[in-house]
Design a binder for these strands. Structure first.
Length: 957
RNA sequence: GCGGCCUUGGUGGAAUGGCAGACACGCAAGCCUUAGAAGCUUGUGAGGGUUACCUCGUGAGGGUUCAAGUCCCUCAGGCCGCACCA
């Protein structure tokens, strides 16, 4: 490739030409200047990063512009990765030129699975491979000329960073959610309530009578971070448990694509569910894409309904339903197989006349239940979903009583009812629910129609093909002495039924959420250790702040303990537990030196990214997670940002319910506890699209190197063989990755930046086309040529006063580009800059004042060439803080506009008119135009619409 | 199944309800060059006409409007999210 590189060939013969060699020289020189002078260091109002020389920064407008920080992969970057970084950099530079104090930096999210897997594969310690990957990435990104504040570039694996991750964990651990005030409070305040009796303990004993273990257990039910045995997603192939958000729709791990099983394990959880309502409500404060807000709302899944108690042999089974109006139609019940009440309701023998199909072939109900449970537990989530259409289950042998009809209803267990949602038990209304209908058909259960069908079917469900689940109808067959729902609409009946239940103490209106608590522990080496130890009695102790950070220990063997991916009976083992020297410690936690065992789970890789925006603000603060003065300055709420948060956050939409939900949750806890003034971490969110690339596959379907494809007559060949082309992601595995370095080598970083920004709107995916990059390169060459001679390197700008046409072209460009920049419409901003430049090319010469404005206009997009031209135009200061051009309204409006005259919507004439012309004048002018008169002919004019100054439409006939 | 988004020349894309196709790639012709590459100039939605110019045209069909790529409805195709969530 190097032989055909244009820059290399030209460098020797044309030293003054803006080609690769000159671009490379300019770019590395300016990158050095920026670094040496600390051009992009943003002063804080307080602390180590404040700068007296910067004046009163508090009085300056300021912007905090962020990227979702990268995971440093060993594979290196392709051109798709920096798209967002370039976009935020362009905007950050634009805002800086608008006088803003701009905080813009980039850190590294470096704990996590891939680094560990890479380390295991190469036999190198994860810290070594991760550091190497970060160094490589810094190198690649530096070439792009990103204006970052290097002092703020944190890394999550730095002990000085994760000591604060652990500190925040302790804040969360030492808090509980007070439903009364709807906010987190220190756990000490709850203990005080128990101690002084203002809050009774569950069993009524005094707090002082409880053992340490009992107190521990009780507080665990309140803490926002707690350890508990719960059904979790166990992934034997990875050897770790996973959060719900990390499991794909088809029941596999997002990383590695291994099957995931439900397993009851003691794990760390975060009580994110306490914040369900606030996480939904505060979305209204945010300037986020509606699609992302919707995804978060759906993920939290608020649904209003009722809890209803069904009695079984004196016990009550509580169900959650969104349709209390159909209570009369509940003809059986289903519990999740894991439901705690199952064992207590199962009778010794099958009731007389039990349907054979209900028994699952077992001699007793207990055997049937045991067999079904075993079967369900062995199923992976994948299998469970594949089998979703076929309803399975067994009868428990018990009957419950329908609270409104008083009828006995059989109680089943079935895996279509999930333990994790609602109460893990349902009332089944087969006539009006598709799943219940299918189950009832399979087990020959009775059905009752209680909602009047509106599609012509009869009221006998046994004649139906499927359930009738429309809300837009009225209730029927639903009355007894004290309650009649007949004739009520669905909405009215819901309220009436709920009220009736509440009055009798057997139910109440309630809200249920799909969101579950966040599974927060992983069986990994390469993550933050928990600042938790256990004493000899197994009682948990949080370490004091003074013992932070708990460093990741150096070990011989850091590989995870993985299993056969399908071995659902396996259970997790933590790599840290192998290291007895580290696990067993002697500490003085206030009552003398005692032996303790450390917690050996580690935090998930999301932990570090849950709060990094706070550390960007105050990276060197050793006293606090962030100085309130600095937090308030950069993130504090304002009229424009009612919840506060970073001014712009750019990243991929794939984090919609992972990182973005977790980070909002942590931020709210820190807010409640008084550590931050902002309620939300990110005010404006922008999702950039993906850069896609053609994938070429051979006959066997394997990708072949895209760079080696030859195209002939619309067909594609690799090494003489015809191959197929398809659209795909860009990446190493598809052999179509293009490295930013290769584009920089061939054209320069400014060309790459410009090309990426001009490919299309930032928020949509677009295909990479290496051939098209040359267009951006040519533009920069023409810009250069308008200002500097290619033959001599001398300035060629003229000292003339620009004529009016030139001023109009300039100010029209300024006006348009300014608006486009502010709206992140960089593609059209580039187009307008090219138009201005093309105008100057045609003009034949460039007046100095116009050249300077053009250079400033393009500076955020192509900063190196702009700095160089600015310097050559005689300026000694960097243009990073020069004022961005402002359009003069006198010239931004065209002197004359072409008005189109339409007759019945078809253009018949064009008039050149002043922009200030009135509708009436324009109408008169149009009707007098000979072409218009001719076109109208004899037809009567029925109506004339004039929209000065651009359009007149004459309606005839 | 539920929810959301998208569909414009050969390609990427542009168009506050007001001249569809800005800008760029590609392609074609020309200039330059020993030749190529690079660069420069001109042209480039489709069809018709010698020119002026005419007709058609934004996935398909319908509607609202003086006027629709843009707003509404139906349908098709594609993408994304959720999914046995009671």
């Amino acid at each position: 490739m190097s032989e055909t590189t244009p820059g290399a060939a030209e460098a020797a013969t044309e030293p003054f030409r803006y080609a690769a060699a000159l671009a490379a020289e300019i770019e590395s020189r300016w990158q050095d200047v920026w670094e040496k002078e600390g051009t992009f260091n943003a002063p804080n109002p307080a602390g180590a990063l404040s700068d007296p020389a910067a004046g009163d920064v508090a009085a300056k407008p300021h912007s905090f512009i962020m990227d979702m920080f990268p995971y440093p992969s060993g594979a290196g970057l392709h051109v798709g990765h920096p798209l967002g970084y370039i976009a935020t950099d362009v905007f950050a530079r634009f805002q800086r030129m608008n006088g803003h104090n701009v905080l813009h930096t980039l850190g590294y999210d470096a704990f996590g699975l891939p680094a560990e897997q890479h380390a295991v594969a190469t036999g190198q310690h994860p810290r070594i491979t991760t550091d190497a990957a970060i160094a490589n990435m810094r190198q690649q990104l530096r070439r792009l000329g990103l204006g970052h504040d290097p002092r703020r570039s944190i890394s999550t694996i730095d002990p000085e960073y994760y000591r604060w991750t652990q500190w925040i964990f302790l804040q969360i651990f030492n808090s509980w959610y007070d439903q009364e005030t709807a906010k987190a409070r220190p756990i000490a305040e709850l203990i005080a309530q128990f101690a002084d009796g203002s809050r009774p303990t569950p069993d009524g004993r005094a707090w002082s009578e409880l053992s340490a273990a009992e107190r521990d257990e009780l507080l665990g039910d309140f803490r926002l971070a707690y350890s508990k045995e719960v059904p979790v997603n166990w992934c034997p192939g990875l050897g770790t448990v996973l959060a719900n958000e990390e499991v794909t729709a088809d029941g596999r791990s997002e990383r590695g694509n291994f099957p995931v099983f439900k397993s009851n394990l003691r794990q760390w959880m975060m009580r994110i569910t306490a914040y369900s309502d606030r996480l939904i409500a505060d979305l209204d404060l945010l300037d986020w894409p509606e699609a992302i807000k919707l995804q978060q709302r759906n993920w939290i899944g608020r649904s209003e309904g009722a809890r209803v108690d069904f009695s079984v042999n004196g016990d009550a089974i509580t169900v959650f339903t969104t349709r209390p109006d159909t209570l009369f139609g509940a003809t059986y019940m289903v519990l999740a197989p894991e439901h705690a009440l199952v064992d207590s309701i199962v009778p010794a023998a099958w009731p007389a006349e039990t349907h054979e199909d209900w028994k699952g072939g077992a001699a007793t109900p207990a055997e049937a239940v045991a067999a079904y449970r075993a079967e369900a537990a062995a199923k992976s989530d994948v299998e469970r979903q594949v089998d979703a259409k076929i309803k399975t289950g067994v009868f428990t042998g018990a009957y419950a009583t329908n609270p409104v009809s008083g009828e006995p209803v059989p109680v089943f267990i079935a895996d279509y009812v999930l333990m994790g949602y609602g109460t893990g038990a349902i009332m089944a209304v087969p006539a009006h629910d598709h799943r219940d209908f299918a189950f009832a058909r399979a087990f020959a259960l009775p059905m009752r129609c209680v909602v009047q069908p509106t599609d012509g079917r009869s009221q006998d469900p046994h004649e139906w093909d499927d359930a009738f689940d429309t809300y837009d109808s009225v209730i029927v067959n639903s009355a007894h002495d004290s309650l009649s729902l007949n004739g009520l609409s669905v909405v009215e009946a819901k309220a009436a039924a709920t009220e009736w239940l509440a009055a009798r103490g057997i139910g109440e209106g309630t809200v249920n959420y799909r969101l579950r608590d966040w599974l927060f522990s992983r069986q990994r080496y390469w993550g933050e250790p928990f600042p938790i130890v256990y004493d000899e009695d197994g009682v948990m102790h949080a370490l004091p702040e003074s013992m932070l950070p708990v460093e990741v220990p150096e070990v011989e063997d850091y590989s995870p303990h993985t299993y056969d991916p399908y071995d659902s009976k396996s259970s997790p083992k933590t790599p840290l537990s192998r290291n007895e020297d580290w696990v067993n410690v002697e500490l003085d936690l206030g009552d003398g030196v005692r032996p303790y065992r450390r917690e050996t789970n580690t935090m998930p890789n999301w932990a570090g990214s849950c709060w990094y925006e706070l550390r960007y603000i105050d990276p060197a603060n050793g006293e606090k997670v962030v100085d309130p003065a600095n937090e308030g300055y950069w993130l504090g709420p304002t009229d424009q940002k009612p919840g506060g948060g970073a001014d712009l956050y750019v990243g991929g939409a794939e984090h919609a319910v992972l990182h973005l939900l977790y980070a909002r949750f942590w931020h709210k806890v820190l807010h409640d506890l008084g550590h931050v003034s902002s309620v939300e971490p990110f005010h404006k969110l922008f999702n950039q699209g993906m850069i896609t690339a053609d994938v070429y596959r051979d006959e066997r379907g394997f990708p072949v190197p895209a760079a080696e494809i030859e195209e002939r007559d619309g067909k594609y060949f690799w090494q003489g063989e015809q191959v197929k082309r398809e659209a795909g992601k860009m990446g190493k595995s598809l052999k179509n990755a293009v490295a930013p370095d290769s584009i920089c080598d061939e054209y320069g970083a400014d060309t790459l930046r410009l090309y990426e920004m001009s490919m299309g709107p930032l928020d949509v995916s677009r295909p990479w086309d290496t051939r098209a990059v040359v267009g951006s390169y040519r533009f920069l060459q023409r810009l250069w040529r308008n200002i500097v001679s290619e033959d001599t390197g001398e300035l060629v700008v003229t000292e003339e006063t620009p004529d009016e046409a030139t001023l109009r072209a300039l100010h029209k460009a300024i006006d348009g580009i300014r608006g486009d920049m502010a709206g992140l419409r960089f593609n059209t901003a580039v187009a307008k800059a090219i138009e201005l430049n093309n105008f100057l090319v045609k003009r034949g010469s460039t007046p100095r004042v116009v050249a300077e404005q053009a250079v400033l206009l393009i500076a955020p997009l192509a900063p190196h060439i702009a700095e160089e031209l600015w310097r050559r135009l005689g300026h000694t200061e960097s243009l990073a803080f020069a004022d961005y051009p402002v359009a003069d309204p006198v010239y931004a409006v065209a002197e004359s506009v072409i008005c189109v005259v339409q007759i019945k919507g078809k253009v018949k004439a064009r008039l050149e008119v002043a922009p200030s012309i009135s509708d009436a004048e324009l109408e008169a002018l149009a009707l007098a135009d000979p072409a218009v008169v001719a076109a109208i002919g004899d037809a009567p004019v029925r109506k004339v619409i004039a929209r000065a100054p651009k359009l007149v439409n004459i309606v005839t006939g």
